[in-house]
Every structure is written in structure tokens, then in C-alpha cells.
Design a protein around this nucleic acid. Structure first.
Lengths: 194, 194
DNA sequence: TAACAGTTAGTACTAGGTACTAAATGCTAG
DNA sequence: CTAGCATTTAGTACCTAGTACTAACTGTTA
């Protein structure tokens, strides 16, 4: 059996600038914790070449990369904590209707397909439904929902909620979510105030 | 009204070594991105004092702290990428059933009531339903769900999924979620493979 | 007032770089 | 075969955010 490690591969072959830079991007995407020195050994070129490559590709230094990774995750936690409403509330008539907008990104998507995971669409709709009813505290009792079309990362979700009726402490709210006029989700919620 | 900022507080008062070291630990727990220089200004002491404090408390330098945050989340991200499952998968029989556990915390709850927001319960159930069906890529088409009882932050959610039947590319999966034997959620999902 | 904890000052050194200049090497077209 | 250009390598000064260490200076307390 012939087995070539990355090391064998790299020491046997010197890639062209373009090839090397592509591999460099790929390697650093996989592992942003690699130092220039490690990359230099990986690609069997001088450290200056690695640095020129990073400069040309606009890739920041190790410490910046690590910091970016750290801040990404640190801010993610904070932003979730901050908002109780998923998406941005752009219109609200208590007891009647409301509109919220959610900008999707590929953190919300399946990596393979880039399709937004259902629970994000659900979360936007549910929290909008909650916002619409004129109650201090409420919980979702029942939801009947339908995903009509897949949503791609980057799409802007516009959710429109309408309170249909109120019976005792139960609120019936319908939410329709659109991407560019096209309906992609429909949810019927029964919310219970407590 | 008397308002004291942290700055006022710190410049008016010099804490004892013990107090300062406690505050230091707390500050760095809140924000690990603080440099010794920023801490020095915060506590109104010299940079050497901050460094002695860190040494005594065994707190690593800024870059190490950032790296730790980054690595923590990097491995977390990787594990999410691997599973894409909300909660921890403890049992799985492809095409039949599965169980996942989600430890809730107060980041997942309404601040006022400490009740877990519905979409977290939904997300656990939906992703477990996805895991159970033996398909590479699938989307939720329809869901009919019911929240039976509110869940408090700290509760451990045990979701049990059962695939009921398959018709063409449609899968019918039922998920029941429990907190200490008590059922708190029920969801009927129709998943569509693509 | 001596002893000691606590604090501050200063120096040499480190990793992992940036920014820059200069020189060497490789390839290609005339 | 060689001029000209891209590419690569070498080397220097400088940076940040430190470590590790020595020495000196306060402040309190016995």
C-alpha cells in the first residue's frame, strides 16, 4: 500500500504560488490555530513567503485569528441573552398584529445544504406571536405549523402575526413568514397567559 | 441621586489585596479579554501588582485566556457540526427511535418567570426527529406540537422520538419530552427527505 | 524602630508577529 | 543566451502583551 502523508506530499512537491495560496486558505479555515512557522514547514517555503501569502490573501495573524474565533462565540452567547424576541420587531399593534424581520446567516443553516434549520423559523414566529398578545407573561400551548419551502442562509425572513381570537386566557395567533413575497412558513399558535 | 460608576468606585477606594484579587477574578470571569493594562487602570494599582495577583491566583495571560475561549468554542462548534443535534444524543436506532437529553439553563428562559422558552424544547425535539430518520438530508414539513407544562431553568429535558411510519419521502415521527417522568411536550413531525 | 507584607520600578527576554528594504532565484520571451 | 519580470528569501527595526527576575520603596504593626 502506498500511503503519502501531507508531509511527504509537501516535501516532494513545491506548489505554484496560486496552488499554495489556495491550500493555505483551506488549511487555515480547517485550523486557524496554525502559526506561520508551522505553515512554513507544511509548505516547505520560507516564513516570509507565508507572510507575503497571508498579506496578499488578507489573512490576519495567528493572534487575530484566535481572537476572532473567541469573540465570535463570546458575542453569540451575549446576543442570545439580550433579546427575548428572535428577529427585529418592526411593527406591533398589541392585541392585533405585528411584523418582525430576521436576517438569516449560515450559522443558522445546515452546513451541507445551506438550508436554514426549522427551529429558527419557528423561534421567530413563536416569539412574534408572544409579542402580539397583550399579556405580561404567556406560554405556547399548542402550535400547528407547516414549512412550505426551504429557506437559504442569507434570506431575510418577514414574519407577520395576526391575533385571530381570544377565549379566556387562550389566544389564537396565526403567523405567516415570507421571503421576498413568497410564503415559506405558516404557524397557528394557541398561547396561554398565566 | 447618587450614582457611582466602577471608575469612581475604584479611584475613590483602594481595596485590600484580598478584595482586589476577588474582584479581579470576577472581572476576568465576566470579560476575559481585559489586558493587564486595563486592569491596572481599573484597580488603580501598578501593572506589576496585577501581574503578581494573576501569578498568585494562577490566572494565565490575556493571550492564553483568549486562546482558551477560542478553543472551548471551537471544539463546541465542531461537535455541533458533527451532530447538528440540540441536546445530547444518548440512544439512537436509525429508522426507529432515539433519546436525547438537554440540560436547560437560565439563558434559555424568560427572565421574568425563569420558564424555558418554547423554541428550545421544540429545537431539541425537531433535531432528534431528524436524527432518527435514516436520511442524509431532511427538512421539517409539518409539525403539530403541544406544550403540556412549563419547564423551569435547570430542568433536564429527556426527549424520546419514535418513527411511526414512512410514506415515500415522508417520515412521521412522534417526540415526547419529559422532565422527571412528567410529560411536558408532545410533537408530531412530518419530515421530508430531499 | 525593626520587621515584614505589599507594592512599585526596572531590566532582560519571549512569541509571533508587522513593515520595510535588499538580494537571490526561477522562468519566459525575444 | 540573456534581459526582464515574478517570486522567494534574508535581514532589520519595531510592536504587544506578556514572563521572570532583582531591587527598592511604602505602610503597618509588634
Amino acid at each position: 500500500m502506498l500511503v503519502l502523508t501531507w508531509g511527504d506530499f509537501m516535501s516532494s512537491k513545491r506548489l505554484s504560488k496560486r496552488e499554495r495560496q489556495n491550500e493555505l486558505k483551506e488549511k487555515l479555515r480547517e485550523d486557524p490555530f496554525l502559526t506561520d512557522e508551522e505553515l512554513m514547514e507544511l509548505f516547505n517555503v520560507s516564513i516570509q513567503t507565508i507572510r507575503l501569502d497571508r498579506l496578499e490573501l488578507g489573512i490576519p495573524e495567528l493572534r487575530e485569528r484566535i481572537k476572532n474565533v473567541a469573540e465570535l462565540n463570546y458575542s453569540k452567547v451575549r446576543s442570545i441573552k439580550g433579546t427575548e424576541i428572535v428577529g427585529e420587531l418592526v411593527d406591533l399593534n398589541l392585541g392585533s398584529n405585528g411584523i418582525s424581520i430576521l436576517e438569516t446567516n449560515n450559522n443558522m443553516a445546515f452546513k451541507k445544504t445551506n438550508v436554514i434549520r426549522g427551529h429558527h423559523i419557528f423561534a421567530q414566529a413563536e416569539s412574534l406571536a408572544m409579542a402580539v398578545i397583550d399579556e405580561e407573561v404567556a406560554l405556547t400551548g399548542v402550535a400547528n405549523i407547516k414549512y412550505k419551502n426551504p429557506v437559504k442562509a442569507g434570506d431575510k425572513l418577514i414574519a407577520k402575526a395576526q391575533m385571530i381570537r381570544k377565549r379566556g386566557n387562550k389566544y389564537f395567533v396565526h403567523v405567516f413568514t415570507y421571503v421576498k413575497q413568497e410564503q415559506i412558513f405558516r404557524g397557528k399558535f394557541i398561547l396561554v397567559s398565566i
